[in-house]
């Protein structure tokens, strides 16, 4: 008998506060599994962001620092410079990273800090009640745009992975999704590559994970996966956007 899947030791025993079907839980588990499998669990230091993932320090079984809104990359920079041999990562949502934290994420890549950022993009501000985020899709209905986002008024969504991929200091940038089991496997591989890239000293790595927000989108968890696949993936194409040459 082989245990194919059991709860990872990289997760604490606490139940998450996430809504049913929120894919934050999947991404948490992938980060935990990668850290366990690469033997980094006792070494890793994480920086939590503000948003739904603010309590990620309660769920990931590693030492973590809570950062001010959007400033997780700046905090991670400090941690990494004090502990240059430890794996350091930030776990941020799109309301945190793509809006108030845009300066920090661009400049952490610009400086080529050897940290890994897990960027969970669900195209909405989930925690505060479903307002429009910079990543909200055109026509998507949110509480601050009840008729749908109007690009003439609010602009077009920000493609963060593409933006970071063209910064010279970024070493590994990939966009993945978690809408079906195959995508989850690819997402895990991408997160592993991000950490390996950091430990090899190549530079900054960013893994953008397309995620769902069933409560904010007003859909059931299963409908949300379908909505992600049909609407988000065409605008946010999946794939490796930047990788070290020898990798």
């Amino acid at each position: 008998m082989t245990v194919v899947h059991a709860r990872s030791k990289g997760l604490t025993d606490r139940e998450t506060h996430y809504c049913p079907g929120c894919t934050h839980g999947i991404v948490h588990r992938l980060v935990a599994e990668v850290l366990v499998e690469e033997g980094l669990l006792n070494e890793a230091i994480g920086c939590a962001a503000v948003g739904c993932s603010i309590l990620s320090y309660n769920y990931l079984n590693v030492d973590m620092v809570e950062s001010a809104h959007g400033r997780a990359p700046a905090v991670a920079t400090g941690v990494k410079r004090v502990h240059p041999n430890k794996p350091v990562f930030t776990y941020q949502g799109d309301g945190d990273l793509a809006s108030i934290g845009t300066a920090e994420i661009v400049h952490v890549a610009h400086r080529g800090e050897k940290i890994t950022t897990i960027f969970v993009n669900n195209a909405i501000y989930g925690m505060t009640g479903g307002q429009m985020a910079p990543t909200t899709l055109p026509g998507q209905k949110v509480t601050t745009a009840p008729d749908g986002r109007d690009p003439a008024h609010a602009g077009l969504p920000l493609r963060v992975a593409e933006m970071i991929a063209q910064v010279p200091g970024a070493a590994y940038v990939e966009r993945v999704s978690v809408h079906n089991p195959a995508a989850v496997r690819k997402a895990k591989k991408a997160i592993r590559n991000g950490f390996l890239c950091q430990m090899a000293g190549h530079g900054f790595s960013l893994i953008e994970v397309l995620s769902t927000c069933p409560t904010g989108w007003g859909l059931s968890p299963i409908e949300s996966l379908k909505w992600l696949e049909d609407n988000m993936i065409p605008y946010y194409p999946l794939g490796v956007l930047r990788a070290p040459e020898e990798a």
């Binding site: 245990v3 194919v4 059991a6 709860r7 998450t16 996430y18 079907g21 839980g25 588990r29 989850v184």
Partner: peptide, 23 residues
């Protein structure tokens, strides 16, 4: 015993075992 259910579980509440031929 494929484990797909556990891969998609956001709350990590699923344990999957696969049996070998002997079992």
């Amino acid at each position: 015993g494929c484990g797909n259910c556990a891969l998609m579980c956001p709350d990590s509440v699923i344990t999957v075992e696969r049996f070998g031929k002997q079992r």
